[in-house]
Design a protein around this nucleic acid. Sequence first.
DNA 1: TTTGATTTGTTCAAAAATAATCAAAATTTA
DNA 2: TAAATTTTGATTATTTTTGAACAAATCAAA
Lengths: 249, 249
Amino acid sequence: MSYQSRKQIILKILDEKGDVDVKELAQVLETSEITVRRDLGTMAADGLLYRTHGGAMKLSLVNQPISFVQKSAVNADKKDHICRIAAAQIQDGDVIFMDCGSTVFRMCGFIRDKRIKVITNSLPVVHELLNSAVSINLIGGEVDAERQAVHGSMSIEHIRRYQADKAFLGVGGISVEKGLSAVSEKEAEMTLSMAANAQVTYLLCDSSKLGKDKYLTFAPLTLVNVLITDEQSSEIIQAFTNVGVKVLR
Amino acid sequence: MSYQSRKQIILKILDEKGDVDVKELAQVLETSEITVRRDLGTMAADGLLYRTHGGAMKLSLVNQPISFVQKSAVNADKKDHICRIAAAQIQDGDVIFMDCGSTVFRMCGFIRDKRIKVITNSLPVVHELLNSAVSINLIGGEVDAERQAVHGSMSIEHIRRYQADKAFLGVGGISVEKGLSAVSEKEAEMTLSMAANAQVTYLLCDSSKLGKDKYLTFAPLTLVNVLITDEQSSEIIQAFTNVGVKVLR
DNA sequence: TTTGATTTGTTCAAAAATAATCAAAATTTA
DNA sequence: TAAATTTTGATTATTTTTGAACAAATCAAA
């Protein structure tokens, strides 16, 4: 197998899995570890990947602060369950908002082949979808390094210029009593703006956040058309359904 | 079997499988390896396939756009020379525009410790400066995956909302006769907008681009207040100075 | 800080592939 | 039909790639 053939395979695996190791690639490519090391070295020099000890990572995953990567990986199974359901609500041709939450980010892996337009303020979402079938519009404004997202009054104005079919949003906390709550006023504003400019608003929320409130209550449950969750308790689901929120799980 | 017959068969196999090897083709075509090598050589020269060691690949699998990192690394010494001079023009407290050029991007390394605000449409610039002393505003709009930048009418509007002290811009080509020229109308628009909303406009241009024009002439030299270049020829520098462009080198 | 395990990258030899040269065979042209 | 031209295949020298071996570097645990 030639270097170019191996290169294509390596890039494909990196795109799918985000990172690889030398031993695994040597096995998959049916070649020696030193050949794989040379290939990875060449590809790193060409700016195609990031070389780590024992393997390599996709460039787009490297420049994210640990905090976002770790946060996104917490309850990954639950989040992926939610994201599969969310992705199934999206048809080719849709225009969708995606906010900067760690659950919403994981939707990227499930929508990359869809011919849709994504409007987002999240830098990780942009990076993840850059080389995909998705067309991207990025909301402008002040960049928040910690959250890797754009916020502020300029962002709010920008969002108002768009009209989306669907919005996929996360929150810090949600309960029947208090409605939606957040830990950041900026994020709350973004959530409100995206919801206001979409036909249908989906809330992606894993079970760890249901029934729990954060310091800033910023919207009633009526902001949400559909709640997508992994929560299995009938009582909790019923409580939301009783106040008019459709629940998918 | 004639060359034309073999060619059709080779192209058919490439289309089906994406890649081929010389031995396999020799067997299928019932000819010698050297004949196959000659055929592949001719076809590669004609731009029909990509010759690899031991075989060939379909062009579409190989023709990836040159990465931004690779482009930025071309003439790195010249670019860094220019960027050092550019960085020296910036004081703490400044608000500056930075466009999406590969030379401008290299300025990041020289300004990361300055307490300034950067307004940019370049994703690599944002990533490079995220964990630095710099405050960043990101221009919103449609994301161009190849250039990793944001463009479009929404972006133009967004830029107009800001007033910067300085703008640091690149161009595709520049000459005394034709003025500034570009290979992309989108980038030309961004350059014009940033220049229109800055007090002082700096053009970063390495010697390989001086005196050379691209297909779209989009602005006269008067758009530029200061040209920063690595060019050492007194004649060329004088030519620019004669038409009112201050030159730093 | 030390130590053992793991990984990396260099060196070298072997294997594989390429390209140049030349002669033979096949095809085309007059 | 013969001469000229083109194509093909064999041989050989050169280049490229690969894998083994090993010293140096890195990592994580003690």
